[in-house]
């Protein structure tokens, strides 16, 4: 797979405050990468630097062969950005906003604009001024704006903020489809970690301007998941606080919570339970992205 974004030893400071400190990472073309971290960790600064709208103090960046410091317009032509503040003109209607930005991206096509308005459920409201849109509608329009030019790289800063559950689902499905069909590389910054879990191939954990961990969920899980918490829905009732040598807790009449040293012991444990009773469900409850996020940050807070 080709490298889409390569960042080496990137540093940036504002007014003496170090916002990014020796940040290095690579993003493969056609992958979806989640940028995770608390407020002020430097996620937005990375997006701005990669688009060449601010300059780094030091370090190297290459996006599809272009250096944003000297060739920012080339990158901006192939990228789409959704900023946290939507960045739409409230006095213009939805369709007028899309027409304006499509002209700036040299991709004006009325058919494409109508397709996107339809895709994001804004067809009926297209002639209403954006100032009268709900937060969710503005967010959807901002997404439509970002993908107008069918960008090769898409930067999304909190793309699902303000969307209702249906809207979130729709957006995530659309992003995944775009990634699969067009091979768009997507960089997602979000606080809603469980939303990222279903679509990201790789995660970058940022804290205080440094990347404290990066990798796929599986890689991070293998590194950080020292103790597995397994919830099992079963007819087995346990006397005491151990079963088959592992600590267990009776959550309710049909649910047990096991503390296990690794994932390797799950199968033998379930076999033992099955010898005595039925099992309807078994789920690791501490390997979701949010739990991993806190475990990664745990050692760095």
């Amino acid at each position: 797979m080709r490298t889409s974004i390569q960042v080496e030893q990137l540093c940036k400071s504002y007014g003496g405050y170090q916002v990014l400190n020796n940040v290095s990472f690579t993003v493969e073309q056609g992958s979806i990468v989640g940028l995770l971290g608390p407020n002020g960790a430097g996620k937005t600064t990375i997006v701005r630097l990669l688009n060449g709208v601010i300059l780094p103090d030091s370090g190297k960046m290459v996006l599809h062969g272009h250096n944003p410091v000297i060739d920012g317009d080339a990158i901006r032509r192939i990228s789409g950005v959704v900023t946290e503040g939507a960045g739409l003109y409230h006095e213009l209607s939805g369709v007028e906003n899309l027409r304006f930005f499509s002209k700036l991206y040299d991709c004006y096509d009325e058919k494409r604009i109508q397709e996107l308005l339809q895709q994001f459920g804004l067809e009926e409201a297209q002639k209403k001024p954006v100032g009268k849109y709900s937060t969710g509608m503005k967010k959807r329009l901002a997404l439509a704006k970002a993908i107008l030019s069918r960008p090769e790289i898409l930067f999304l800063d909190e793309p699902t903020n303000g969307l209702d559950p249906d809207g979130v689902k729709q957006v995530l499905t659309d992003l995944k489809a775009m990634n699969e069909l067009q091979g768009t590389t997507i960089i997602l910054c979000s606080h809603v970690l469980h939303q990222l879990e279903s679509i990201c191939d790789k995660y970058l954990f940022l804290q205080d301007g440094c990347i404290i961990e990066q990798g796929s969920k599986e890689e991070i899980e293998n590194k950080y998941l020292k103790q597995v918490k397994l919830r099992v829905k079963t007819g087995l009732s346990v006397n005491g606080d151990h079963f088959a040598g592992y600590a267990v807790q009776q959550l309710d009449r049909q649910q047990l919570l096991f503390d296990l040293p690794s994932k390797d012991v799950i199968s033998p444990l379930l076999e033992q339970i099955l010898q005595q009773s039925w099992i309807h469900e078994a789920e690791i409850i501490n390997n979701d992205l949010e739990s991993l996020y806190f475990q990664v940050r745990g050692g760095n807070v």
Binding site: N51, V53, D73, R76, R77, V81, T83, G85, A86, G87, L88, Y89, H90, F101, L104, Y105, D106, K145
Partner: peptide
């Protein structure tokens, strides 16, 4: 003030 300058500067307009 309307936070649209950010969108403009992110676009490929010189």
């Amino acid at each position: 003030e309307r936070r649209t300058l950010e969108s403009l500067l992110f676009s490929p307009i010189d």
